[in-house]
Amino acid sequence: MTSIDSSLYLNNQQKVRTPSQELGKEEFLKLLMVQLQNQDPTSPMDDSQFMSQMATFSSLEQMMNMSNSIEMLVNNSLVSPVLQYSHMIGEEVSYMTFDEETGKETGVETSKVVGVTQNQGWAVFELENGERIYADAVVQVGKSNIDDGEQGDADPDNEEESE
């Protein structure tokens, strides 16, 4: 003989309603419908009150749509490295170069970023000199003095005094 699980009896089901802190559009519509159904027929709701409630509902729906759109935009921009690095177009970047055979560092090259693409989820800079490098290979952004051998201003400790 098969027995019935006692947790499935109606009297064993949860009877306590757990209140929600949020009032969504479904709850708002339910409240509005209950209000319309239970209004006094001898003194129905004023038109201005009804319009006010409908405007509130419309405003709530638009805010929810805007919130969803912003959330989708933020999530997509975090996923897309092209959007994340698009501000680099036109910037001058310096990057390390390596000998393909030995793998040894051969120096630093500088070029302007002319485009940004994506390869397996990683941002790839397309450079003015025809090279393509990953964004994390950049060692400097902006005018570079690395490959020019310039030292900048003279050492302040080595100043010569003139009279």
Score class of each variant (00 low, 15 high):
Gly142Arg: 07
Phe28Arg: 04
Glu126Asp: 13
Asp148Met: 01
Phe57Val: 01
Met66His: 07
Gln151Glu: 09
Gly115Asn: 14
Glu150Cys: 00
Gly121Leu: 11
Gly107Ser: 14
Thr117Asp: 13
Val139Phe: 02
His87Arg: 11
Gln39His: 14
Ile70Glu: 10
Asp47Gly: 11
Asn38Pro: 06
Leu8Ile: 05
Gly130Glu: 09
Lys30Tyr: 06
Glu27Leu: 08
Asp99Cys: 03
Glu126Ile: 03
Lys30Trp: 05
Met45Thr: 07
Glu91Arg: 14
Met64Gln: 08
Glu126Leu: 06
Glu109Tyr: 06
Thr102Val: 03
Phe28Asn: 06
Ser52Pro: 03
Leu83Thr: 09
Gln21Ala: 07
Asp157Lys: 03
Val79Arg: 07
Phe98Asn: 14
Gly121Arg: 08
Lys143Pro: 13
Gly152Phe: 00
Thr110Asn: 11
Val34His: 05
Asp157Pro: 01
Thr42Tyr: 05
Thr102Cys: 00
Val114Lys: 07
Leu36Thr: 04
Asp46Arg: 01
Asn158Met: 01
Gly115Trp: 00
Ile70Lys: 14
Lys112His: 15
Phe50Leu: 12
Gly152Thr: 03
Ser162His: 03
Val113Gly: 15
Asp153Pro: 01
Asn145Lys: 06
Leu73Gln: 12
Met54Arg: 08
Trp122Gly: 15
Gly130Thr: 05
Gln37Asn: 15
Ile89Pro: 07
Ser162Asp: 03
Ser77Thr: 08
Pro19Trp: 02
Glu100Lys: 05
Gly103Met: 00
Asp147Phe: 15
Leu31Ile: 02
Met51Ala: 14
Asn75Lys: 12
Gln49Glu: 14
Gly107Ile: 05
Asp136Gln: 12
Val34Ser: 05
Asp99Phe: 00
Gly24Asn: 13
Leu36Met: 15
Thr102Ser: 09
Asp136Ile: 01
Gly24Thr: 06
Asp153Thr: 01
Thr42Met: 12
Val108Ser: 06
Val141Glu: 13
Met64Val: 12
Trp122Leu: 12
Lys25Val: 05
Tyr95Pro: 05
Ala154Gly: 12
Asn68His: 08
Leu83Gly: 10
Ser7Lys: 11
Gln35Ile: 05
Gly152Ile: 00
Ile4Lys: 15
Leu127Val: 11
Ser77Arg: 13
Val116Ser: 07
Met66Trp: 11
Glu101Met: 00
Thr110Trp: 06
Ser94Tyr: 13
Lys112Gly: 13
Asn145Gln: 12
Ile89Arg: 12
Met64Cys: 04
Tyr134Met: 09
Val34Thr: 12
His87Ile: 02
Ser86Leu: 03
Asp40Ala: 14
Ser69Asp: 05
Gly103Arg: 01
Asp155Glu: 14
Val124Asn: 14
Gln140Gly: 05
